[in-house]
């Protein structure tokens, strides 16, 4: 696997995650830019994501929902704030109302993603910044679901 490091700062409510891939930045960029590739990895295996709108452009809007095992839907949105293809992205991510549009009552988080060319391919760095603990708690629930269901089986399926 490619994970180099992850570090959490509980007082600042930030998480930094670094992974390396053997593909060049332009190819790693595509897994973010192409909604069909993005929806393969954004949601946990038991909550696959569907992007119904996706614009990786300044002020671009994305709308997605994740579908749970019982068919329940968890809608979310992105606003792309800054984009420098293929090296940097700044995204605001939030929860949506049942109609799929952003819920103004809910806190948002920011994802700063950088893609650095290295000898062996690409180093992707994620800096996630939460505005409050409530947001972090809801988003972290996804990580727990992932852990319980075991992502490895799904990855093996992708590689087969």
């Amino acid at each position: 696997m490619t994970v180099i490091s992850s570090a959490a700062d509980p007082q600042a409510l930030t998480m930094t995650f670094v992974a390396e891939f053997t593909a060049p930045p332009a190819r790693v960029w595509q897994v973010w830019e192409d909604p069909r590739q993005l929806e393969r990895w954004w949601g946990p295996p038991t909550w696959p994501a569907t992007f119904t709108r996706h614009e990786l452009t300044p002020s671009g809007q994305s709308r997605y929902h994740m579908t749970g095992p019982e068919g329940e839907k968890a809608p979310g949105w992105w606003t792309t704030l800054e984009v420098e293809e293929p090296t940097r992205l700044l995204i605001e991510d939030g929860f949506s109302q049942p109609d799929g549009e952003p819920d103004p009552e809910m806190p948002t988080m920011r994802l700063e993603v950088s893609f650095d060319a290295i000898d062996s391919g690409t180093r992707m760095t994620i800096l996630a910044r939460f505005t409050d603990l409530d947001q972090l708690e809801k988003v972290a629930a996804m990580g727990m679901i992932e852990g319980m269901t075991g992502a490895l089986g799904q990855i093996d399926a992708l590689l087969a």
Partner: peptide
């Protein structure tokens, strides 16, 4: 801190899936 670690676990799994997608194009894992 626990919540942030769980969130980091989500990114570990996302990165593994991205790696698998890239492997389909012939970019092997490290």
């Amino acid at each position: 801190g626990v919540l942030l670690e769980r969130y980091a676990a989500l990114w570990h799994d996302r990165a593994a899936t991205i790696e698998a997608i890239l492997a389909e194009d012939g970019y092997p894992p490290h």
